[in-house]
Amino acid sequence: MTQAVLEVRGIVKHFQTRGGAIARAVNGVSFDLAKGETLGLIGESGCGKSTLARVLARLDTPDTGEVLLDGNDIGRIGNRAMKPIRRRIQMIFQDAVSSLNPRATAGAAVAEPLKLHRVVPRNKVKDRVAELFEAVGLPVGLMSRYPHEMSGGQCQRLSIARAISLDPDIIIADEAVSALDVSIKAQVINLLMDVQTRLGLSYVFITHDMALVGVLSHRIAVMYLGRFVEVGDADAIIRRPMHPYSQALIAASPIPDPDRPRTQALPIKGELPSPIKPPSGCTFHPRCPLAQARCKSEVPELRTTGEARQVACHFA
């Protein structure tokens, strides 16, 4: 593997809820992200994936753990020191329309980061904005529109233009296409992949859609209650998931082929427990069809099993 551009080490992020309880949103997550690589991060709502995204994009600071960008920890540095680093890590949000300032035109939204970081001389900003519009397939005529005057797909293209205007190394995409219509989703996914090839970007692509993550990631990390339970090559995980939770996720993902022989899905019971009172031992044990006594008491470590695969299960 090539040199990691981002190394994440033991990130922990807990929140205090209003009642004073502690929600363990992210509970010790580590991974490397190589240049040009897409890490697909999958899990159900409440598993901590969005919190992790916010920590990686430095919208939140981790309680403990390090976010190493080229070997330097950016996890807890101040706002001023963070500013030049912002150029290198960008984020795209789920709700495209509301992730754009309602009072800024499309042109202004893309020009803003260019001016803020003096990416190009002031008199070249306009040309650069036009180039960026073209790069994401937006008609230049939309420049004077406001976000609410554009479609969801156009807004998400605009967000992408805004993100790549700073020529970042890493883009964190948090459910970036989930809200889009099927026919538009494909366009935006293709755009994201084109941009990646052209600019050599690395993505952390967060989603709950297993099929989507399978299509666009090189590696997949499956997250459950604040921890990674399985990490490995996308192809391998989709074809041969080892953790019972990964297996359940794949079995539950509907496939648009009615004639496909139904795989006998593992019966997964109940719902994601609250991160305030996570189950003891392996947090998946109350829903796991394979659970034994050991799973209730002993936390399984994420250990390497075979070629570039890590699984946190006593029986994998």
């Binding site: 912002r86 984020m91 789920q94 309602p102 980061p113």
Partner: peptide, 17 residues
């Protein structure tokens, strides 16, 4: 609390901005 505010932080906009 809306995402556009975070999107401003991500591109590196300062407090005043």
């Amino acid at each position: 609390a809306k995402p556009y505010f975070d999107s401003g932080r991500v591109i590196g906009a300062g407090s005043l901005r």
